[in-house]
Amino acid sequence: MKHYSFFLIIIFFNSCQFFDKQSPSEKELLQKELKSINWKEVDEYPSFVDCNQIEGKVERQKCFFQFLTELIQEKIRIDTLSTLYPELDTIEVKVTIYPNSRIQFEPLFPKDSVAYDRVKIDSILRRRLVGFPKVNPAIKRGIPVKTQFILPVILKVE
C-alpha cells in the first residue's frame, strides 16, 4: 500500500508542472496568425454583378477580368488613341480597386515611351474610363481589401 501512495504523490507533483507553463500572449498569437496569412492572395476576387452567379473562384475571376477588359476596350476604342498613335496596339493599365468599390486606372507606358505623350494618353484614359458598373471589392478573411493588377488593353482590333 505504501508503494501506491508514494507513486501517486510523484505523479501529483510531476503533473503540477503542466499547470506552470505560460500560455502564449494575445500579441504572440496575433503575430503567429499574421505570419501564417498569405497576403499575396485574396479569398474572393473583385467581381461585377454579372459574374456573381458564376460558381467557382477561378471562373468568377476569369469573368471579372474579361468583363473589365472588354469594358475598357469599348470605352477607349471610340477615342483618338489609335489615330494619334497608330503604332500603339496595346497599352497596359494598372487597375486599383479599393475596399469602398472605387476604381482607379493608371496607364503604364512602354519602355520607348518617349514617342508617346504621357499626359495626353493619361488625359484621354481618365476622361474615357468613367461610369463603370459597381464592382464588389476583393475579400480577404471576410474583409474588403484593396487590390491592384495590370491589364493589357488591346487598342487595335482587326
Rank of each mutant, 00 (worst) to 15 (best):
Thr83Asn: 11
Leu108Tyr: 05
Ala115Met: 13
Gln104Ser: 10
Gln17His: 12
Phe48Ser: 03
Arg126Lys: 15
Ile91Pro: 01
Ile143Gln: 12
Leu29Ala: 01
Phe7Arg: 14
Ser47Asn: 07
Asn136Lys: 15
Cys16Phe: 15
Arg77Tyr: 09
Val145Lys: 01
Val135Pro: 03
Gln17Ser: 12
Pro144Ile: 02
Val157Asp: 11
Phe67Leu: 12
Ser23Gly: 07
Ile150Asp: 05
Asn100His: 02
Ala115Tyr: 04
Ile11Trp: 10
Glu26Pro: 02
Ser123Asn: 14
Thr96Ser: 06
Leu30Gln: 10
Asp112Trp: 01
Glu70Gly: 06
Ser5Ile: 15
Tyr45Pro: 07
Ser15Cys: 02
Lys57Ser: 13
Gln31Tyr: 13
Thr80Met: 05
Glu26Tyr: 00
Glu92Asn: 10
Lys2Ser: 15
Ile10Arg: 04
Glu41Gly: 00
Tyr4Lys: 13
Arg128Asp: 12
Val119Trp: 13
Phe48Lys: 05
Cys16Gly: 08
Asp117Tyr: 06
Phe109Leu: 00
Pro99Gln: 02
Glu28Arg: 02
Ile143Ala: 04
Thr69Cys: 04
Arg60Val: 03
Gln22Glu: 06
Glu41Leu: 12
Glu44Met: 10
Glu33Pro: 01
Lys2Ile: 15
Ile72Ala: 01
Ile97Val: 01
Gln104Trp: 12
Phe13Asn: 08
Lys120Glu: 12
Arg102Phe: 07
Asp122Lys: 15
Lys120His: 10
Phe19Gly: 01
Gln53Leu: 12
Asp117Ser: 07
Phe7Ile: 14
Ile121Lys: 00
Phe7Gly: 11
Asp20Trp: 14
Ser101Met: 03
Val58Tyr: 14
Thr96Glu: 06
Phe132Gly: 06
Glu26Met: 08
Thr147Pro: 05
Glu92Phe: 12
Phe6Trp: 15
Val130Pro: 06
Gln148Lys: 15
Val145Thr: 07
Leu151Val: 03
Ser5Gln: 15
Phe18Thr: 06
Thr69Ala: 11
Phe13Gln: 03
Arg77Leu: 11
Gln104Ala: 10
Phe7Met: 14
Ala138Glu: 04
Phe67His: 08
Val95Asp: 01
Val153Trp: 08
Pro133His: 09
Ser15Trp: 10
Lys140Thr: 08
Gln66Met: 08
Leu8Trp: 14
Lys32Thr: 10
Glu87Met: 09
